[in-house]
Amino acid sequence: MKILVPIKRVVDYNVRVRVKSDGSGVETEGVKMSINPFDEIALEEALRIKEAGKAEEVIVCSIGSKDCQQQLRTGLAMGADRALHVLTDDEVQPLAAARALLKLVEKEDPKIVFLGKQAIDDDCNQTGQMLAALWQRPQATFASKVDLDGEIATVTREVDAGLETLEVDLPAVLTSDLRLNEPRFVKLPDIMKAKRKPLEEIALAELGVDAGPALETTAFEPPPKRAGGRMLESVQELVDELKNKGLL
């Protein structure tokens, strides 16, 4: 069984995101980039499934510019067997990403496509669901626990009311939530070994997918600065203020 893990290159979660001065987007020049943390959790889970003897191969893939290969190499160093890079310099929105992933699914025939529930840059939370629809296979999103038994995956999901457990027939799309696992540290010898693992480049156009954005972003701006607080003299003044604002 193969598991396909799509990963996205995003601004590292520790970086304080800044809007470019011309408002055309978010600053990425000289900014640390990483694998989207939810995707890293998905990859960790795929690797654990393989290590438990329930999968033969874990393939990482990414869609984007040449720079994505840094994150693919990190995925290979974590333990993925090989990498696919869908090369494009255009912006790729969730629907285009799902269409491109569908082409990779048709090429590789995986039993599981394991994604992060969302990317921390645009927070769309759409690609996995769209892929399942296009592929016409079941989906189990926001997984906090995954058990595999033959052709069935039992997936625990964190929902507002508590924990929900789904059984889905494979092949299926799974997406990871934060508490699914804690990704491993990349071991230094494995970083050296990752250099020798195969990384295949495919142009997005070769897949017959048009990246043409469905949505156009017209402007970026940072959130407004918080207005400073004000010290009040007494409890009575506080109560009055709250009443004035209609909060009491």
């Binding site: 990483s34 840094q70 540290f185 071991k187 970083i191 050296m192 990752a194």
Partner: peptide
């Protein structure tokens, strides 16, 4: 931007130890 002078492997090694 001395980080740009590092190879991909060197960068990954640094990131892994940093983490």
């Amino acid at each position: 931007s001395i980080a740009d002078e590092l190879t991909d492997e060197e960068r990954m090694i640094r990131e892994s130890v940093a983490r």
